[in-house]
């Protein structure tokens, strides 16, 4: 049981050029459905925890994020169960 109706996911995002990182973070953090946003180390530049009521809402959110200038790549990991 994930505890919330709808779909929760982590979006792992790569940005380019790297000086777009902060504006990208600002823009994404204001979007409806974004619960948490983390800057991360490693292969990706940020991790966004999102919630969408419906599949279409998730699709729209992905579209909105993917069209932010500086977002190069998004990998979506759907949460199937919140354990803790």
């Amino acid at each position: 049981m994930i505890g919330v109706k709808g779909i929760m996911a982590f979006l792992f995002i790569k940005t380019q050029p790297k000086n777009r990182q902060v504006p990208v973070e600002d823009e994404i953090s204001r979007m409806k459905g974004v619960l948490h946003l983390y800057e991360v180390l490693g292969e990706y530049d940020m991790c966004v925890h999102v919630h969408a009521e419906t599949r279409e809402e998730l699709s729209n959110l992905l579209y909105n994020i993917s069209t932010v200038e500086g977002v190069k790549e998004i990998t979506t990991i759907i949460i199937s169960k919140r354990i803790k």
Binding site: M1, I2, I7, M8, R55, E56, L58, S59, L62, T76, I78, I79, S80, K81
Partner: peptide
Amino acid sequence: MEELREFLAITLAKMEGIISTQTLLII
């Protein structure tokens, strides 16, 4: 999502001979 998880983690996991699964959510 709970039902999806149940299908993947219980139903499919119990089937003999399944090597791996990859789930693509239709959005």
